[in-house]
């Protein structure tokens, strides 16, 4: 049973969905940011970034490293400024737990 649970956990999606609590924190940091906007940021992150490499978990890097990487990757993936900002808010929101 434990082995089955381990396999199921390992197979589950690893890119976290934003929670209402994270959305409330995001609103304090970036007024007007909604849970739906964070969900869109997650969808954009998956769609735009997985085309070039396997996705990195939001917890994999520090916020400073993510800021640098998003700058560098924007041109590479042809991401607009608005899309980059959505991805940035999603990643920084879900990594603070």
């Amino acid at each position: 049973m434990a082995a089955l649970a381990a396999v199921l956990c390992a197979c589950a999606g690893q890119i976290p969905s934003p929670t209402p609590l994270q959305a409330r924190r995001a609103t304090q940091q970036w007024p007007g940011t909604t849970l739906e906007a964070l969900r869109q940021g997650r969808a954009l992150y998956i769609a735009k970034c997985s085309g070039c490499h396997t996705l990195r978990l939001p917890s994999a890097y520090s916020p400073e490293r993510w800021e640098l990487m998003l700058e560098r990757m924007q041109q590479r993936s042809q991401i607009s400024d608005a899309e980059k900002e959505r991805i940035r808010r999603y990643i920084l929101s879900v990594k603070i737990e």
Binding site: K48, G51, C52, T54
Partner: peptide
């Protein structure tokens, strides 16, 4: 850069943006 391929005979599911 572009879609990384980690194998040469086996394809992965990734597609270009």
């Amino acid at each position: 850069a572009a879609t990384e391929r980690r194998f040469t005979y086996t394809y992965e599911s990734g597609v270009l943006p």
